[in-house]
Simulated assay, not measured.
Amino acid sequence: MRIGMVCPYSWDVPGGVQFHIRDLAGHLIQQGHEVSVLAPSDDEQQLPSYVVSAGRAVPVPYNGSVARLNFGFLSAARARRWVHEGDFDVLHVHEPATPSLSLLTCWASQGPIVATFHTSNPRSRAMVAAYPILQPALEKISARIAVSEYARRTFVEHLGGDAVVIPNGVSVDFFAHASPRPEWQGGTIGFIGRIDEPRKGLPVLLRALPRILEAHPEIRLLVAGRGDREEAMAHLPAESRERVEFLGVISDEDKARLLRSVDLYVAPNTGGESFGIILVEALSSGAPVLASDLDAFAQVLDGGTAGRLFASEDSDALANAASRLLGDPEARAELRRRGSVHVSRFDWPKVAADILSVYETVTDGAASVAPDERAGFRARLGLAARD
């Protein structure tokens, strides 16, 4: 199958959506499908062979974060050319409800379109206001996927219709078989996320750290991610700062090794999450997980069965829960056991098979159109007939 995927966010600044698209594309290519990904990127950036640059992205505040999007006349021209030259059996766009490449590509395409919605934002005035602009593109979509029930709910409440829920995928074996790093072992808590993005929750964890150290003075906090460490620790007591180690941006391999090394992984996010891929990666690595009780996180952690939950933004609740787990090896071992069973539903072979079933459904529907109608339709688009 010839599959075109559209990434709305800059390939140069990786995030959950980019990782999802990258891993899905890689899995489908391994299965013998032809995949091309259109994404914003600096033209000078070295890209994987299957990624086509649509030009540089610009930062736009969105959903409590900063989205790096690409939207304009040049981008629209590149999207039209990519669609024309790709002659795809199915087009898979991500986040078409944002002013992005995905929306531009929906406007340019006339074939079967599958859309995945990642955002969880129950009160998006921007999405409501933009609906008249979005509607013509959304009506062209053949099938809709949401990565969680909360992303589905956002889509339904703002745009109408419905979507099938297929979660984000993770290469479980990649994380499960990573080798721990000795320097990251021995009484460590892990945090991975953008340091300078408040909704990732590092300030909540740092406020809890002094109380955790009172109960467990040997503990170290390992922080991996982009941002200013000095600014992050500005309000942390001096005696606690020496127990924090900033690792900066780390590779996928080191992320897996970090998760395999820590005694406890903490996800103190404060909102704006529709899924929680880092939780699944941590579970795959065998790390006991403690996460804020966001709806999406609770769903990923099976209501608190596969990982512990604490009240979001409550640093005292975080400190109490972390201190109890750090002092209870048996409880951590039980969380590891439950997590390793639970993550099988997120493994890429299962997730990709579900997505491929959606592709096949929409392409079978397109194939039901009479041959002469398809030929005339393609001629109107100026596209050459298939071999």
Rank of each mutant, 00 (worst) to 15 (best):
A296I: 03
A291C: 01
K255Q: 12
K350S: 12
R332E: 12
G339L: 05
A317R: 07
V266C: 09
A317K: 08
A256V: 12
A352Q: 01
S368W: 02
E242R: 15
H342W: 15
D295Q: 14
L318I: 10
I278D: 03
A296H: 02
A287R: 06
G286C: 05
I278Q: 04
G307Y: 03
V343W: 00
S315P: 00
D316M: 11
D364Q: 15
E281R: 01
G286Q: 05
L294S: 06
P268H: 10
T270K: 13
G272H: 11
A291L: 05
D372L: 13
D364C: 11
F297W: 01
E281P: 03
L356R: 14
R241Y: 03
T361V: 07
K350I: 15
F297S: 01
V351S: 02
A367S: 15
S340Q: 12
K255V: 08
E360L: 09
L279R: 01
D252K: 13
E330H: 11
F246T: 14
S284Y: 03
L326M: 04
S284W: 02
A319N: 07
V300Q: 02
L301K: 06
A291P: 00
E273W: 11
F246P: 05
A366D: 13
S261I: 07
L326G: 06
V262E: 00
S315K: 08
W348N: 09
P329M: 02
L318Y: 10
R308W: 05
E330P: 09
I250K: 02
S251P: 10
F297K: 02
T305M: 06
A352K: 00
A298E: 14
S261A: 06
D354L: 14
S261M: 08
E360A: 08
A333K: 13
E245M: 10
S323P: 11
S344E: 15
S315T: 04
V262Y: 00
V244H: 03
S368V: 00
N320F: 12
V266E: 01
D254V: 05
P329T: 02
S340M: 12
E245N: 06
P349M: 04
A321I: 13
V343H: 01
L356Q: 14
E373S: 11
S315Q: 02
A333N: 14
A352R: 04
D347V: 08
H342Y: 04
T305D: 09
E373W: 12
V362E: 11
A352G: 05
D314G: 01
E334F: 00
R308H: 11
S315I: 02
K350W: 07
A256K: 09
A319L: 09
F346T: 10
D328Y: 04
G304S: 09
D295T: 04
R345Q: 15
L318V: 07
G276C: 06
